[in-house]
């Protein structure tokens, strides 16, 4: 019965406006800085994915006779580290763990934090108070200290590092999600939707989600650079990745004794962290302005 009914209805063809996201992409493409950041970021990701194919040498093979060679040494374009391993290969391979440690916690925290924040923001009242005051407890600690404390308590290792970083990033994302949702909830189209008798879940799905996910996403993208630095910091302190794994933070740590011998080589992992985090930051800035409909 109901399956046959729609067939009788004829809907005239309409002129479709380009959607919101089509406009965002168009504006993003006009932003040279954001596009450059996107290209660098994609290059880094591709580099990490295809590391074994790109890297000229084995990143684990050490040699005591060729330790701390300078940049430009034949066969070792970026020199060697304190154990004589090829820096270029180690930097390329290091991108895998570093990006994983940078992106994964933010990605997971994005879902958890958004869920908490949107619930708190949309339901409001006591639910909001309980959720957000709990979140506030985490804000009492500086994020670096919290990550170190959690990692320290859980023990070193990649998984525990990821877990502690995720816990660190849930509160800020939840707080942004809550404030954006609270603002959206007060706009009249939500009132109109409520006046239509729609369920809270449906209102969130149709009217809230599309309007809050953008700003939360932009904020989360900005956190990736922080996560990268924190992850590197954990590795630097011996809490995240363990040697001999190549990871930029850990490399920075082990090379710091060589800072007077080969300062340029020792600075290379830091440079990679810098480039990656700044490209994520610029990408997030570009997204923010591309999403601003009045821009």
């Amino acid at each position: 019965m109901s399956a046959a009914a729609p067939a009788l209805i004829q809907i005239a063809a309409i002129e479709k406006s380009p959607g919101y996201w089509a406009g965002v992409i168009r504006r993003f493409r006009r932003d040279p800085v954001a596009m450059a950041a996107l290209v660098i970021m994609l290059a880094l990701v591709l580099m990490a994915i295809f590391a074994p194919l790109i890297a000229p040498a084995d990143p684990y093979r050490s040699s005591m006779i060729r330790r701390l060679r300078p940049i430009g040494t034949p066969g070792f374009p970026l020199g060697t580290d304190e154990l004589g391993r090829d820096m270029l290969s180690r930097l390329i391979h290091g991108g895998r763990l570093s990006l994983l440690m940078g992106v994964t916690p933010v990605f997971i925290a994005f879902f958890i934090g958004s869920a908490i924040g949107i619930t708190a923001g949309f339901v409001g009242g006591k639910v909001n108070t309980v959720l957000m005051r709990t979140i506030d407890v985490f804000f009492a600690f500086p994020s670096v200290l919290l990550a170190i404390a959690l990692s320290g308590a859980l023990g070193a290792g990649i998984f525990n590092g990821l877990l502690s970083l995720t816990i660190v990033f849930v509160p800020p994302i939840a707080r942004i999600a809550e404030s954006v949702t609270t603002a959206v909830r007060k706009i009249e189209y939500i009132e109109a939707a409520r006046a239509s008798g729609a369920s809270a879940f449906r209102i969130v799905r149709v009217h809230v989600l599309g309007n809050v996910i953008g700003p939360i996403f932009v904020y989360a993208t900005g956190l990736i650079s922080v996560s990268l630095i924190l992850a590197s910091g954990l590795s630097f302190l011996g809490l995240g990745v363990k040697p001999p794994e190549p990871e930029w933070g850990l490399m920075l740590n082990t090379l710091r004794n060589a800072i007077y011998v080969q300062p340029w080589v020792a600075a290379l992992p830091g440079l990679m962290i810098f480039i990656t985090s700044i490209s994520f930051n610029l990408l997030s800035d570009g997204l923010r302005s591309a999403m601003d409909i009045k821009a």
Partner: peptide
């Protein structure tokens, strides 16, 4: 302006209410 969801087309905005009240999507759009 505030009473229209900026992410919905006009037909979706108008059809939302009837759909909430159980009207099939095609009929609501019509």
């Amino acid at each position: 302006y505030a009473s229209l969801n900026p992410r919905l087309t006009m037909e979706d905005a108008i059809a939302f209410g009837p759909r909430v009240n159980g009207m099939p999507a095609a009929k609501a759009t019509a």
